[in-house]
Amino acid sequence: MPFGPDNIIVLLSSLLALLLFTIALLTYIRERRRKLLFVTGAFLFYFLMTFLDATEEFFPKNGDTIEFIASSFNFIVLLLFSIAILTKD
């Protein structure tokens, strides 16, 4: 399978999402604020979503399950960000 620039971008996105999740988690551990917990959750699902994307790029599988899970994660990410914005600490 050719290793193109799109693969690199997907991989980089996944790593960046993991970094953002780690920062969010550390901030939540320090601050213990509900708003940050939702943001941490959103970044976790964002990371899982990009991770799924990356695995699909490198190990293509056929089936709608992965696509359904990725779409669900997409929805959860947006939902968690919305809750974080609406949450008052």
Partner: peptide
């Protein structure tokens, strides 16, 4: 550096 990174992140919210 970590303190300021976490501060900036918390500040965003």
């Amino acid at each position: 550096f970590l303190d300021s990174l976490l501060d900036n992140f918390a500040e965003m919210w």
